[in-house]
Computed example of a mutant assay.
Amino acid sequence: MILAGDFNAKHTSWGGDINDERGQDIVDWTTRHNIYIHNTYDSLPTFQTTRGKSWIDLTMTKTIIIHDWTVQEEDTLSDHHYVCFSLQIQKGQIQQRTQTRNDINNINTEELKIIHNTTKTHNKTKKTNQIWWTPELQRLRQATNHLRKKYQQERDTINRRHAEHEYLRQRRLYKNTIKETKNTTIRQYFTNTDPDGPWNTAYRIIRNKNKSNNKLSTIKKDGTWTIDRNETIQYLHHKYFPNDNEEEDEEEHKHIRQKKSKIIYERRDNHNHKRHKKQKSDSNRRDQQRNN
Protein backbone atom coordinates (compact mmCIF):
# COMPACT_ATOMS: atom_id res chain seq x y z
CA MET A 1 0.00 0.00 0.00
CA ILE A 2 1.21 3.49 -0.89
CA LEU A 3 -0.57 6.47 0.64
CA ALA A 4 0.59 9.90 -0.51
CA GLY A 5 -0.88 13.37 -0.67
CA ASP A 6 -1.37 16.75 0.93
CA PHE A 7 -2.30 15.92 4.54
CA ASN A 8 -1.96 19.51 5.77
CA ALA A 9 -0.44 18.07 8.95
CA LYS A 10 2.63 19.39 10.78
CA HIS A 11 5.11 17.43 12.86
CA THR A 12 8.82 17.72 13.51
CA SER A 13 9.27 14.10 12.44
CA TRP A 14 8.96 15.09 8.79
CA GLY A 15 10.17 18.70 8.85
CA GLY A 16 9.44 22.05 10.37
CA ASP A 17 9.58 23.06 14.00
CA ILE A 18 5.99 22.69 15.25
CA ASN A 19 3.52 19.87 15.92
CA ASP A 20 -0.22 20.23 15.50
CA GLU A 21 -3.13 17.96 16.43
CA ARG A 22 -3.53 16.61 12.93
CA GLY A 23 0.16 15.74 12.72
CA GLN A 24 0.07 13.91 16.04
CA ASP A 25 -3.02 11.95 14.94
CA ILE A 26 -1.15 10.75 11.87
CA VAL A 27 1.92 9.77 13.91
CA ASP A 28 -0.25 7.77 16.33
CA TRP A 29 -2.19 6.09 13.50
CA THR A 30 0.90 5.08 11.49
CA THR A 31 2.61 3.75 14.63
CA ARG A 32 -0.44 1.68 15.57
CA HIS A 33 -0.67 0.06 12.11
CA ASN A 34 3.05 -0.28 11.29
CA ILE A 35 2.87 2.22 8.43
CA TYR A 36 6.14 3.87 7.50
CA ILE A 37 6.43 7.61 6.73
CA HIS A 38 9.26 8.25 4.28
CA ASN A 39 9.48 12.02 4.77
CA THR A 40 12.63 13.14 6.58
CA TYR A 41 13.01 16.05 8.96
CA ASP A 42 15.93 17.51 6.94
CA SER A 43 14.23 17.42 3.50
CA LEU A 44 13.29 20.44 1.44
CA PRO A 45 9.82 21.85 2.17
CA THR A 46 7.08 20.22 0.12
CA PHE A 47 4.99 23.40 0.07
CA GLN A 48 6.43 26.89 -0.43
CA THR A 49 5.13 30.35 -1.32
CA THR A 50 6.48 33.85 -1.01
CA ARG A 51 4.76 34.02 2.39
CA GLY A 52 6.27 30.88 3.91
CA LYS A 53 6.98 27.18 3.65
CA SER A 54 5.86 23.91 5.25
CA TRP A 55 6.23 20.13 5.12
CA ILE A 56 2.64 18.93 4.63
CA ASP A 57 2.88 16.44 1.71
CA LEU A 58 3.50 12.96 3.09
CA THR A 59 4.43 9.60 1.57
CA MET A 60 3.53 6.45 3.53
CA THR A 61 3.89 2.76 2.72
CA LYS A 62 3.07 -0.63 4.19
CA THR A 63 4.68 -3.88 2.98
CA ILE A 64 6.14 -1.97 0.00
CA ILE A 65 9.75 -0.83 -0.31
CA ILE A 66 10.64 2.49 -1.93
CA HIS A 67 14.05 4.11 -2.39
CA ASP A 68 15.53 7.52 -3.19
CA TRP A 69 12.68 9.55 -1.68
CA THR A 70 13.40 13.21 -2.46
CA VAL A 71 11.69 16.57 -2.79
CA GLN A 72 12.59 18.21 -6.11
CA GLU A 73 13.71 21.82 -6.30
CA GLU A 74 12.46 22.58 -9.80
CA ASP A 75 9.50 24.89 -10.27
CA THR A 76 6.13 23.16 -10.72
CA LEU A 77 3.98 26.26 -11.38
CA SER A 78 2.28 25.27 -8.13
CA ASP A 79 2.87 25.95 -4.44
CA HIS A 80 3.66 22.24 -4.00
CA HIS A 81 6.93 20.63 -5.05
CA TYR A 82 7.45 17.35 -6.85
CA VAL A 83 8.02 14.36 -4.56
CA CYS A 84 9.89 11.54 -6.31
CA PHE A 85 10.86 8.02 -5.29
CA SER A 86 11.74 4.63 -6.76
CA LEU A 87 9.48 1.67 -6.21
CA GLN A 88 10.85 -1.80 -5.55
CA ILE A 89 8.57 -4.81 -6.08
CA GLN A 90 9.78 -7.94 -4.33
CA LYS A 91 8.91 -11.55 -5.08
CA GLY A 92 5.94 -12.61 -3.06
CA GLN A 93 4.60 -9.06 -2.95
CA ILE A 94 1.28 -10.19 -4.46
CA GLN A 95 0.81 -12.81 -1.75
CA GLN A 96 1.14 -10.07 0.87
CA ARG A 97 -1.80 -8.17 -0.63
CA THR A 98 -4.38 -10.18 1.33
CA GLN A 99 -2.66 -9.42 4.60
CA THR A 100 -2.55 -5.70 3.79
CA ARG A 101 -6.24 -5.74 2.84
CA ASN A 102 -7.08 -7.39 6.17
CA ASP A 103 -5.07 -4.76 8.00
CA ILE A 104 -7.04 -2.03 6.24
CA ASN A 105 -10.34 -3.72 7.11
CA ASN A 106 -9.32 -3.66 10.77
CA ILE A 107 -9.11 0.14 10.77
CA ASN A 108 -12.01 1.42 12.81
CA THR A 109 -14.47 4.14 11.82
CA GLU A 110 -12.76 6.84 13.88
CA GLU A 111 -9.43 6.22 12.18
CA LEU A 112 -11.06 6.30 8.74
CA LYS A 113 -12.58 9.65 9.68
CA ILE A 114 -9.10 10.97 10.54
CA ILE A 115 -7.79 9.84 7.13
CA HIS A 116 -10.77 11.38 5.33
CA ASN A 117 -10.44 14.71 7.15
CA THR A 118 -6.69 15.04 6.73
CA THR A 119 -6.00 13.84 3.21
CA LYS A 120 -6.28 15.59 -0.09
CA THR A 121 -4.57 13.58 -2.79
CA HIS A 122 -2.62 15.05 -5.66
CA ASN A 123 -1.36 13.53 -8.88
CA LYS A 124 1.44 15.81 -10.01
CA THR A 125 3.53 14.47 -12.87
CA LYS A 126 6.10 16.04 -15.09
CA LYS A 127 4.73 16.85 -18.51
CA THR A 128 7.92 16.94 -20.48
CA ASN A 129 6.73 14.00 -22.59
CA GLN A 130 3.69 15.87 -23.91
CA ILE A 131 3.39 16.64 -27.61
CA TRP A 132 3.28 20.37 -26.86
CA TRP A 133 6.59 20.37 -24.96
CA THR A 134 9.34 22.30 -26.81
CA PRO A 135 13.03 23.12 -26.29
CA GLU A 136 11.96 26.72 -25.58
CA LEU A 137 9.80 25.55 -22.67
CA GLN A 138 12.71 23.46 -21.41
CA ARG A 139 14.93 26.56 -21.44
CA LEU A 140 12.29 28.65 -19.66
CA ARG A 141 11.83 26.00 -16.99
CA GLN A 142 15.55 25.87 -16.31
CA ALA A 143 15.70 29.67 -16.07
CA THR A 144 12.70 29.68 -13.70
CA ASN A 145 14.27 27.05 -11.46
CA HIS A 146 17.55 29.00 -11.40
CA LEU A 147 15.86 32.26 -10.37
CA ARG A 148 13.74 30.46 -7.81
CA LYS A 149 16.80 28.93 -6.17
CA LYS A 150 18.55 32.30 -6.24
CA TYR A 151 15.57 33.93 -4.54
CA GLN A 152 15.37 31.24 -1.85
CA GLN A 153 19.08 31.46 -1.03
CA GLU A 154 19.26 35.27 -0.88
CA ARG A 155 19.47 36.60 2.70
CA ASP A 156 19.87 40.33 2.16
CA THR A 157 16.44 42.02 2.43
CA ILE A 158 16.83 44.38 -0.52
CA ASN A 159 18.44 41.81 -2.78
CA ARG A 160 15.86 39.23 -1.77
CA ARG A 161 13.02 41.54 -2.79
CA HIS A 162 14.68 42.12 -6.15
CA ALA A 163 15.31 38.37 -6.60
CA GLU A 164 11.67 37.66 -5.76
CA HIS A 165 10.50 40.15 -8.41
CA GLU A 166 12.75 38.57 -11.06
CA TYR A 167 11.62 35.06 -10.14
CA LEU A 168 7.89 35.91 -10.27
CA ARG A 169 8.33 37.72 -13.59
CA GLN A 170 10.12 34.70 -15.08
CA ARG A 171 7.51 32.36 -13.63
CA ARG A 172 4.68 34.31 -15.27
CA LEU A 173 6.53 34.20 -18.59
CA TYR A 174 7.02 30.43 -18.27
CA LYS A 175 3.36 29.86 -17.38
CA ASN A 176 2.02 32.06 -20.19
CA THR A 177 4.32 30.42 -22.74
CA ILE A 178 3.03 26.98 -21.74
CA LYS A 179 -0.55 28.18 -22.25
CA GLU A 180 0.21 29.70 -25.66
CA THR A 181 2.13 26.62 -26.80
CA LYS A 182 -0.74 24.32 -25.79
CA ASN A 183 -3.28 26.43 -27.68
CA THR A 184 -1.09 26.56 -30.78
CA THR A 185 -0.56 22.79 -30.70
CA ILE A 186 -4.31 22.17 -30.43
CA ARG A 187 -5.07 24.50 -33.36
CA GLN A 188 -2.43 22.82 -35.50
CA TYR A 189 -3.74 19.38 -34.61
CA PHE A 190 -7.27 20.17 -35.78
CA THR A 191 -6.32 22.21 -38.87
CA ASN A 192 -3.49 20.07 -40.23
CA THR A 193 -5.46 16.85 -40.59
CA ASP A 194 -3.89 13.65 -41.77
CA PRO A 195 -4.91 12.91 -45.41
CA ASP A 196 -5.45 9.30 -44.41
CA GLY A 197 -7.33 10.16 -41.22
CA PRO A 198 -10.93 8.96 -40.75
CA TRP A 199 -12.31 12.51 -40.41
CA ASN A 200 -10.37 14.12 -43.25
CA THR A 201 -13.12 13.80 -45.88
CA ALA A 202 -15.81 15.19 -43.58
CA TYR A 203 -13.51 18.05 -42.57
CA ARG A 204 -12.78 18.98 -46.19
CA ILE A 205 -16.46 18.89 -47.14
CA ILE A 206 -17.43 21.13 -44.20
CA ARG A 207 -14.64 23.58 -44.98
CA ASN A 208 -15.53 23.40 -48.69
CA LYS A 209 -12.00 22.30 -49.53
CA ASN A 210 -12.92 19.12 -51.34
CA LYS A 211 -12.65 19.73 -55.11
CA SER A 212 -14.00 16.33 -56.07
CA ASN A 213 -17.67 15.67 -56.81
CA ASN A 214 -18.90 14.06 -53.57
CA LYS A 215 -22.36 12.91 -54.47
CA LEU A 216 -24.33 10.72 -52.13
CA SER A 217 -24.27 7.19 -53.54
CA THR A 218 -25.63 3.83 -52.48
CA ILE A 219 -25.16 2.35 -49.04
CA LYS A 220 -25.72 -1.05 -47.53
CA LYS A 221 -28.91 -1.70 -45.54
CA ASP A 222 -30.16 -4.97 -44.09
CA GLY A 223 -27.72 -6.99 -46.18
CA THR A 224 -28.73 -5.28 -49.45
CA TRP A 225 -27.80 -2.05 -51.21
CA THR A 226 -29.89 1.00 -51.99
CA ILE A 227 -30.45 1.43 -55.71
CA ASP A 228 -30.20 5.22 -56.07
CA ARG A 229 -29.68 8.50 -54.22
CA ASN A 230 -33.35 8.99 -53.34
CA GLU A 231 -33.60 5.63 -51.64
CA THR A 232 -30.36 6.35 -49.78
CA ILE A 233 -31.75 9.66 -48.50
CA GLN A 234 -35.00 8.03 -47.42
CA TYR A 235 -33.15 5.28 -45.59
CA LEU A 236 -30.85 7.69 -43.74
CA HIS A 237 -33.79 9.95 -42.87
CA HIS A 238 -35.79 7.06 -41.44
CA LYS A 239 -32.81 5.63 -39.54
CA TYR A 240 -31.60 8.82 -37.86
CA PHE A 241 -34.87 10.78 -37.76
CA PRO A 242 -37.56 8.15 -37.16
CA ASN A 243 -41.26 8.99 -36.91
CA ASP A 244 -42.40 9.86 -33.40
CA ASN A 245 -45.26 7.41 -32.94
CA GLU A 246 -46.75 7.52 -29.43
CA GLU A 247 -48.39 4.12 -29.89
CA GLU A 248 -44.94 2.51 -30.03
CA ASP A 249 -43.78 4.12 -26.78
CA GLU A 250 -42.44 1.94 -23.99
CA GLU A 251 -43.03 2.75 -20.32
CA GLU A 252 -39.87 4.85 -20.08
CA HIS A 253 -40.85 6.89 -23.14
CA LYS A 254 -44.37 7.41 -21.77
CA HIS A 255 -42.93 8.71 -18.53
CA ILE A 256 -40.70 11.16 -20.43
CA ARG A 257 -43.67 12.42 -22.47
CA GLN A 258 -45.76 12.95 -19.34
CA LYS A 259 -42.93 14.80 -17.64
CA LYS A 260 -42.36 16.96 -20.70
CA SER A 261 -46.11 17.75 -21.00
CA LYS A 262 -46.24 18.70 -17.33
CA ILE A 263 -43.31 21.11 -17.74
CA ILE A 264 -44.92 22.67 -20.83
CA TYR A 265 -48.26 23.14 -19.07
CA GLU A 266 -46.60 24.63 -15.99
CA ARG A 267 -44.62 27.09 -18.10
CA ARG A 268 -47.74 28.00 -20.08
CA ASP A 269 -49.77 28.56 -16.91
CA ASN A 270 -46.98 30.63 -15.42
CA HIS A 271 -46.75 32.72 -18.59
CA ASN A 272 -50.53 33.26 -18.68
CA HIS A 273 -50.53 34.22 -15.01
CA LYS A 274 -47.79 36.82 -15.54
CA ARG A 275 -49.52 38.19 -18.62
CA HIS A 276 -52.84 38.48 -16.76
CA LYS A 277 -51.12 40.16 -13.83
CA LYS A 278 -49.43 42.66 -16.15
CA GLN A 279 -52.69 43.42 -17.96
CA LYS A 280 -54.42 44.02 -14.66
CA SER A 281 -51.61 46.28 -13.48
CA ASP A 282 -51.69 48.27 -16.75
CA SER A 283 -55.48 48.62 -16.48
CA ASN A 284 -55.25 49.89 -12.90
CA ARG A 285 -52.56 52.38 -13.90
CA ARG A 286 -54.71 53.71 -16.77
CA ASP A 287 -57.70 54.04 -14.47
CA GLN A 288 -55.61 55.95 -11.97
CA GLN A 289 -54.33 58.27 -14.67
CA ARG A 290 -57.90 59.00 -15.86
CA ASN A 291 -59.02 59.74 -12.32
CA ASN A 292 -56.16 62.16 -11.83
Rank of each mutant, 00 (worst) to 15 (best):
A163S: 14
A163F: 08
E164K: 15
H165V: 07
E166R: 15
L168H: 03
R169P: 01
R169C: 06
Q170I: 04
R171P: 07
Y174H: 14
K175Q: 15
T177Y: 06
K179C: 05
E180L: 04
T185D: 03
I186T: 09
Q188N: 15
Q188F: 00
T193V: 10
D194H: 12
D194L: 09
D194W: 07
D196Q: 15
D196F: 13
G197H: 00
G197L: 01
G197C: 01
W199M: 12
W199Q: 09
A202T: 06
A202N: 08
A202H: 06
Y203D: 00
R204P: 00
I206K: 15
I206L: 13
R207Y: 06
K209L: 12
N210G: 04
N210Q: 10
N210W: 06
K211W: 03
N213Y: 10
N213G: 02
S217P: 02
S217T: 12
T218I: 13
T218G: 11
K221M: 09
G223T: 05
W225F: 15
T226Q: 02
N230V: 08
T232K: 08
T232Q: 09
T232F: 06
Y235V: 13
Y235T: 15
Y235C: 11
L236K: 07
H237F: 05
P242R: 04
N243P: 00
N245P: 01
N245Y: 11
E250Y: 08
E251Y: 07
E252S: 13
H253M: 12
K254R: 15
I256D: 01
I256Y: 02
I256E: 03
R257H: 03
Q258P: 01
K260Y: 02
S261I: 05
S261G: 01
Y265D: 12
R267W: 04
R268T: 09
